[in-house]
Design a protein around this nucleic acid. Structure first.
Length: 264
DNA sequence: ACATTGACCTGAGAGC
DNA sequence: TGCTCTCAGGTCAATG
């Protein structure tokens, strides 16, 4: 579930913990998540330090001592933890960066669907993956959103989740964006009128920004958010209706049929 | 061009 | 209690 807001929170966490510390060694607990070989990873990291971070969509990048970037992707489970004593070691750690100061940065991924890589250039990596603009980037504005819509006939939810259209939105936040915009997840994107497109775009920016403000913790989200109630039969936070589930691109979409009518 | 399905992977929670 | 089954959802590939 690490989507843009979750990854942004991890970026800030990394910024406030592990930067500028020398990496003394690495420990590979599971090589399945590693794109390069353990040896390559070791060669590129040991003796250096992480100097800065960037994020594009759901990908986090950490600059390695001015020589390339560590790429972290979390799949659907996973995160980072910076700790010193063994008692604080997290479960499901797959890779550890062991710093000279005695601390460790653990990359965790319960289901091992993540990816760790080292690349020379972030832009090249983004281009290679075919990722669209980051959803929170300034240059992803309403004009760019409309431009992306033109020519697409995808369902609204599939469109939002397409990383080539816009990078960073996954299953959970797509549901929230559609709920806030009052748009049914299966409506086709090109059927939305001008006003609906505007509302959808505004909701996209608003939901992601709000989630980041709340540390991507659904427990603390505004009362009218649907994410904490993604469950069939749950009460809609905005009306007397009940949350329903429908399948979209093989994923569960939770929505309120009253707030998000099939046809608007 | 888009939807659907299944693979990857593992453990939490449900159901019996 | 303890087992088995389903499901979770990011990404990619194959198929319709």
């Amino acid at each position: 579930m690490p989507e843009l807001p979750d990854v942004e929170v991890m970026k800030r966490y990394l910024d406030s913990t592990a930067l500028h510390e020398e990496i003394e060694s690495i420990t590979v607990e599971s090589s399945q998540v590693l794109e390069p070989s353990s040896g390559t990873l070791e060669d590129r990291l040991v003796g250096r330090s992480l100097e800065s971070t960037r994020r594009h969509g759901k990908y986090l990048f950490a600059e390695v001592g001015g020589d390339g970037w560590l790429v972290l992707h979390f799949g659907m489970t996973g995160g980072l933890k910076y700790y010193k004593v063994e008692e604080h070691a997290p479960e499901y750690d797959r890779l550890l960066l062991n710093f000279a100061n005695g601390y460790h940065l653990a990359y965790t991924s319960q289901r091992k669907l993540g990816e760790v890589d080292v690349v020379d250039d972030v832009e090249d990596f983004v281009a290679e993956k075919g990722l669209g603009p980051d959803a929170m980037a300034e240059d992803f504005d309403f004009a760019a959103f409309e431009e992306a819509i033109s020519g697409s006939r995808a369902m609204a939810k599939s469109f939002l989740m397409d990383q080539e259209v816009v990078a960073g939105i996954g299953n959970v936040y797509a549901d929230e964006i559609l709920f806030q915009a009052g748009i049914h997840p299966r409506r086709s994107i090109d059927a939305l009128d001008g006003e609906e497109r505007r509302e959808l775009f505004d909701a996209l920016k608003e939901v992601l920004a709000t989630a980041i403000e709340h540390q991507a913790d659904p427990e603390t989200f505004p009362d009218d958010y649907i994410v904490p109630r993604r469950e069939e039969g749950a009460d809609c936070p905005r009306c007397e209706g009940q949350v329903e589930r429908v399948e979209v691109s093989g994923r569960s979409a939770y929505y309120c049929p009253r707030c998000q009518p099939r046809k608007g």
